[in-house]
């Protein structure tokens, strides 16, 4: 299969290794991977801020960028949910609805793609560490992905998966929410990050780089001995 990568802005600018790891795993499974460099942002910050006109332009651009792609795979539940769930909503009363639904049907979150589309749970990774998993809210509740990432992690050689309290609680990122209401966002990450740290895991793994930015940023500030890691980075680990 020829996979077109959908790389979130965060990943592009702050954690490029997540994008590279995603590609590495897909290539290891025998798929060709391309990156269409005309892509920018999916428009979610504007969408969430109520600026639907700006978001709509972003949606139309993204639809154009991925025209003809066999499948589009993104290492982010949040950005993929934007395409799969919210592009059709944004474009529902326009002539572009069919194109939005077409892209939505071809687009997958990384763990969703591996488990549900390819039927793969063991990607041949080794990672002898204790990890706990954080469900990003978009992956969990917009895309209904809960077991998929866990199946992948359980198949990683040497990896010990520990569930945390507050398992389904939000980390408090919420895009611009984290900066517009920093006190509420911080209270939320205190609850979530505290529970993650109490697991005693070496790493907190998630399919969402934006949650990891929030959780990792707080854990780092508090000096907690647990590091953020994207699931693609775990799955890319083979030594």
């Amino acid at each position: 299969m020829r996979v077109s990568l959908f790389v979130p802005c965060f990943v592009d600018q702050l954690t490029p290794q997540v994008g590279l790891a995603t590609a590495k795993v897909l290539k290891r499974l025998g798929h060709a991977v391309e990156f269409r460099s005309a892509q920018t942002c999916c428009g979610q910050p504007s969408f969430n801020s109520g600026q639907w006109d700006v978001a709509r332009e972003g949606a139309l651009r993204t639809i154009e960028v991925f025209r003809g792609a066999e499948v589009v795979v993104g290492p982010s539940g949040s950005c993929v949910a934007m395409i799969k769930k919210f592009y059709p909503e944004l474009l529902k009363d326009t002539p572009h609805l069919a194109a939005a639904e077409d892209l939505a049907a071809r687009t997958f979150e990384f763990s969703e793609f591996l488990v549900n589309k390819l039927g793969v749970t063991d990607v041949g990774a080794k990672f002898a560490k204790k990890v706990t998993y954080h469900d990003g809210c978009h992956a969990l509740r917009e895309l209904r992905l809960k077991e998929e990432p866990r199946q992948l992690l359980r198949a990683v050689k040497g990896l010990e998966l520990i569930e945390s309290e507050e398992g389904e609680s939000c980390c408090g990122f919420g895009g611009l929410f984290s900066a517009k209401f920093p006190m509420i966002s911080t209270a939320m990450v205190q609850v979530k990050g505290g529970a993650l740290a109490r697991t005693g895991a070496d790493f907190v793994v998630s399919s969402d780089p934006s949650c990891l930015l929030q959780i990792g940023g707080w854990l780092s500030r508090e000096g907690k001995p647990i590091l953020p890691l994207h699931i693609a980075e775990v799955l890319a680990h083979d030594a």
Binding site: Q13, P16, K27, V33, F35, S37, A179, P182, W218
Partner: peptide, 29 residues
């Protein structure tokens, strides 16, 4: 925004090169 974030949370150090700068399709054909 930036200062509100940084009051309680760190930001990772920025990488020298972005994903798009590092990417070559030919590596992944």
């Amino acid at each position: 925004y930036m200062s509100a974030w940084l009051k309680t949370r760190d930001l990772p150090a920025a990488p020298a090169q972005s994903f798009r700068e590092q990417w070559k399709d030919s590596d992944h054909g």
